[in-house]
Amino acid sequence: MADLAITPVRQFKIPVTAECISPDFVAGKSLRETELTQVWEGNRKVKLGSLFKVAGEIGRTPNDCAIKIAGNVSAVRRIGYEMSGGSIQINGEAGMYLGERMKAGTITVTGNAGSWLGTQMRGGQIDVKGNAGDSIGGSVRGGTKGMRGGTITIHGDCGTEAGAWMQNGMIRVRGACDLYAGIHMKNGTIVVERGCQGRVGAQMTGGKVIVLGNAGGVLPSFQFEEIRERAKAGDEKIPGPFYVFSGDVNEGGKGQLFARVSDNPDLKLNERYLER
């Protein structure tokens, strides 16, 4: 692995769009070539070298590239766009569209990440130690195709619409989720460890949302099925017991919503349906 250090030279006030900070783009290029790459700062074309200090060595293939970014890049968008291998480590805050359409490799963020993290990703791993913004693992606005594979792990909380239009893969949120986790979800798994604000799985047609904290209520368009002892998330078995709902009935959906019994006393009244 060849380490390439990309360090912002100043605090960016306006958004920078830098698809080129990705193992796929830099692989096989020289440091000079990388510095001369054109990026957009707001509506102006600038050289990457004028915004970032580029140092270290670059691998020949994406898999040999390890990009390290130290500093606040919360205004930089599209880092790791379509990456197919290698790794990116961000020691600081990350911006929007991190890992958009990524295929493989790993992205690690020690601080917080912005919205649209892992939009339409197909594979690989994203690990965020802090919080993340809205629509992680989702689709572009208006689109109907979310993430297709890979894993996103958020150690903090995340915003609204986590896993919107998700088609496959896994999102694991160690903290809490805002509204609409798993909206329009088609397949895949979302695990929320601390709870949701509500409206979980709205209009979902498939897939699984497992809420270990309070789910914030369940939409009336979900049907109560049973109480299950444990829930399966990939290879892992999470101990319950769980209330299991299916839905969204409005969409003719066959999605599953698991809400842990011990954290959801407000769903207890569903138990009367079990006696029949």
Binding site: S139, V140, R141, G142, G143, T144
Partner: peptide, 8 residues
């Protein structure tokens, strides 16, 4: 208005 995904 209906198709923002068409613009991106």
């Amino acid at each position: 208005m209906m198709r923002p995904e068409d613009h991106s």
